[in-house]
Computed example of a mutant assay.
Amino acid sequence: MAGVSGCIKYSMFVFNFLFWLCGILILALAIWIRVSKDGQEFISKGESGMNPYVAVDILIAVGATIMILGFLGCCGAMRESRCMLLLFFIGLLLILLLQVAAGIVGATFKSESEHILNETLQKNVELLSGTDDNAKAFQNTLIKFQKEFQCCGLLNGAADWGTNYESCKCPDQSNTSCTIYEGQLVYKQILGLVFSMVLFCQIGNK
């Protein structure tokens, strides 16, 4: 029984340690976007009537929650603390209930949400080939993001830029984040986490 108990304990520690690291990464990314000039420019693009920082604040809260739960799980497992393990269980249960509630709401408004999402995606892709000031500002901000995160485009990678995908070219052939597009080595699609947050900000104007 001691072997089984030890196996469960260390397995839970490893799982929650990874959980804790994910929370730190999400929290760090959200804080960086919140305080960085480039991040603020990126999320404030569009005509949303809602505060664009609401999504960032939610991301900060999610990252902090995951980090705290991971810490409780790690320490609770290693110290065999019933109090920490109980708090960890309650936290996970609350998250599960919230997910179920969100799933019900999402299923109810699925068709409307898909329509809004498709319109928002297409609108942002069209900005990449635009020539007005708003489009140019969005393009310049996205180019900075692409260089920093070694990624490209919003929906279909380099294809989003049309023939003007110079900013997507990958100089390092050994880089695993690169792919072939029209015979050229380019970075892959942009980070889903960042773009999903931008979509959340812009959906508010529909």
Rank of each mutant, 00 (worst) to 15 (best):
N175P: 04
S113R: 08
I143N: 13
C168R: 01
N134V: 13
Q146T: 00
F88A: 06
D133A: 13
L92N: 09
L127M: 15
L87T: 09
G91H: 01
E114W: 12
K110M: 14
N156H: 07
I104G: 06
S177R: 03
G183K: 03
Y181M: 04
N156W: 01
L94K: 04
F89N: 14
Y181R: 00
S113V: 15
A159R: 07
A107I: 12
E112P: 12
Q146N: 00
E114H: 13
G130R: 06
Y187I: 05
G103D: 08
S129V: 14
K147Q: 04
L93F: 12
G157Q: 03
L142V: 00
L98Y: 08
I95F: 11
N175T: 03
I95N: 01
L127H: 15
Q122L: 08
L117D: 13
L155D: 15
L96I: 12
E182V: 03
N118L: 15
D172N: 10
Q99K: 07
Q150H: 14
S167D: 02
T163N: 14
I116N: 06
N164A: 13
S167M: 02
E148H: 08
N118S: 15
G103V: 10
D133W: 10
T108P: 09
F88L: 05
V125W: 01
N134H: 13
S174A: 12
L97M: 06
G162W: 00
G162T: 06
K123E: 11
S113G: 14
C152P: 08
A137F: 11
D133H: 10
N156L: 02
E166L: 06
D133F: 10
L185I: 15
L93S: 15
E182H: 08
C178Y: 05
E126G: 07
V105D: 11
L154P: 04
D172C: 05
L121E: 13
K169C: 03
I116Y: 09
Q173H: 07
S177V: 06
C170W: 10
E182D: 14
Q99H: 09
C152I: 02
L93H: 04
S113C: 11
L121Y: 11
L121K: 12
L87V: 10
W161E: 00
N134L: 13
L155C: 09
N164Y: 11
G153E: 01
I104A: 10
A102Y: 11
K169V: 04
K136F: 13
Y181A: 02
A135R: 04
E148T: 07
F109E: 12
K147E: 02
A135E: 03
Q99S: 14
F138H: 09
Q122E: 11
N134K: 12
G153N: 01
I90N: 03
L121P: 09
A102K: 04
D160Y: 00
Y187C: 00
H115T: 15
C168I: 00
Q173I: 12
I90K: 07
I116G: 05
A135Y: 03
A137I: 14
A158M: 02
C168W: 00
F109P: 04
L98K: 04
F89C: 13
I116E: 05
I180T: 12
Y181Q: 01
D133Q: 14
V186P: 03
G162K: 01
L94T: 13
T176R: 05
L121D: 12
G157I: 02
T163F: 12
L93I: 10
Q173T: 15
N156K: 09
H115I: 15
L154H: 05
G91I: 05
E119N: 14
E119F: 10
I104D: 08
G130Y: 07
V186I: 06
K147C: 00
